[in-house]
Design a protein around this nucleic acid. Structure first.
Length: 433
DNA sequence: TCTGGGGTCCTAGGACCC
DNA sequence: TCTGGGGTCCTAGGACCC
């Protein structure tokens, strides 16, 4: 029987904020999206206060001040680095792993020859906590979907102690499915959840009993796979090699609405540069570029406008000069004066490895990482993003469109100047438990 | 006043071809 | 004037994920 483990970091961003500030333990804490817009992570204590996921900050001001909730802007440099530490530890301990997201990792536990899998997982949990400071839960199931469900139950049940194994306790599967609302199943989002509810399918168990033909018709092949996985038939393997990206994107909502052409233009050019850098890091080239702009979709009074333009490169490229230039051309096609813009972005499409079939006939001419680009990447790596930039008008340096990040924690692990300082008394209190 | 960013996969429909 | 069955490729949109 295939045996999948799913390691999921508990309240990951909130836990990251606590690693270097142990004084935050036990306190309600939320982490906000870019622009300090809405809640994207909550500590257990914040969940207990009833703060919903995705709540806009302005709607929970009352709870925050009544309960002294700690609020943080998101600090992806910190979360990304702590994630790498957790993942590399897991990769050392398990035979094969699939890093599924910044805070989740599937493990192949099939051929792991240990007498007691639950005990082995409990030990792994302790190790991760001790070495990285991050608490995790582990679910085990015969399919990825069931491992996900096991994980969720392991998190919720104090008795489980953070580990739940449905492979060696197959009689627990049915009660686990009955306890799981259908919307909590991996692959069932809001739309399908309410469609299913309308037809009396409320739990994962109900869904596992639905008719194949009906599911195929209403939810396509994707939904059918989910149903099979609930029945214990594995449809998704571990994917140890990350698939090469097909698109990449750099977009932002602006801190406030922007009407000046130069401002939106310079924002887009810097997004284009950033997107180009991402593509170079992946050793890829882009076949096309798309630029989009839009006004504030929540503002019902201001006139709405949104548009996008795509430009195809004659020769696939990752060169910032090509990409910035194309972004400028695309921008010219869609810019309309007189609107208050709130969001803009650059997508790079049809990504390919230089030399693969999709890059086609032009292999020898592909520009992806020449000496200049390598030098640019090296300088920006060393001196911070944007130390060198292409074609930005000098007046753009004010960055009216900059993100709001008023409650940012230090980048403890990726910036020398932000390095945590341990004093004797703090060490005695124990930063890691 | 204040509502994220970055992805994937599937499907339907239109244009075009023989 | 009416009439057929396949194909492919592309795009837009909808569903989902974290």
């Amino acid at each position: 029987m295939p045996t999948f483990g799913l390691v999921d970091c508990n309240n990951f961003y909130a836990s990251c904020e606590r690693v270097f500030q142990p004084g935050l333990a036990q306190r309600p804490l939320v982490v906000l999206s870019n622009n300090d817009g809405c809640v994207i992570a909550r500590s257990q204590e914040a969940k207990a206060l009833g703060i919903p996921m995705g709540a806009p900050l302005f709607k929970i001001r009352g709870i925050i001040s009544d309960h002294d909730v700690v609020v943080r802007s998101s600090n992806y440099a910190l979360y990304g680095d702590l994630s790498e530490r957790v993942m590399s530890l897991l990769a050392q301990e398990a035979p094969r792993v699939e890093i599924y997201s910044i805070d989740e990792c599937f493990l192949d536990l099939h051929r792991l020859a240990v007498p007691d899998l639950s005990a082995w997982c409990a030990d792994l949990r302790r190790k991760v906590r001790l070495w990285t400071g991050i608490p995790v839960s582990i679910g085990i199931g015969p399919t990825k979907t069931l491992a996900k469900i096991a994980n969720k139950l392991a998190k919720g049940s104090p008795r489980a102690g953070g580990v739940l194994d449905l492979v060696h306790h197959p009689d627990w599967i049915e009660p686990a499915l009955r306890k799981t609302p259908v919307g909590d199943v991996w692959g069932i989002g809001r739309r399908w959840s309410s469609m299913l509810a309308d037809r009396g399918i409320a739990t994962a168990f109900d869904l596992s009993r639905a008719q194949d033909g009906w599911v195929r018709q209403r939810m396509g092949i994707v939904g059918l796979r989910t149903v099979h996985e609930l029945r214990g038939i594995a449809c998704h393997d571990l994917e140890t090699e990350p698939a090469p990206k097909q698109t990449t994107c750099c977009s932002r909502s602006f801190g406030k609405a922007v009407s000046q052409r130069e401002e939106v233009y310079s924002a887009l050019l810097s997004f284009a540069e950033r997107a180009a850098e991402k593509v170079r890091v992946g050793n890829q080239v882009a076949g096309a570029l798309q630029v989009f702009v839009s006004t504030d979709r929540f503002d019902t009074k201001a006139p709405p406008y949104s548009s996008a333009a795509t430009i195809r490169f004659l020769v696939p490229t990752a060169d910032a000069r090509d990409i910035v230039k194309a972004a400028g051309q695309a921008f010219d096609k869609i810019w309309r004066p007189g609107f208050a813009y709130r969001k803009a972005g650059v997508l790079l499409l049809d990504l390919a490895e230089p030399g693969d079939r999709r890059a086609g006939l032009f292999d020898q001419r592909i520009r992806y990482s020449d000496d200049l680009m390598q030098a640019v990447d090296a300088i920006n790596q060393r001196h911070g993003r944007g130390a060198i930039a292409f074609g930005l008008a000098p007046k753009s340096r004010g960055r009216l469109w900059a993100m709001k990040q008023d409650m940012l924690s230090p980048r403890y692990t990726t910036r020398w100047s932000d390095l945590a300082v341990a004093r004797a008394n703090e060490a005695a209190n124990g930063a890691l438990d």
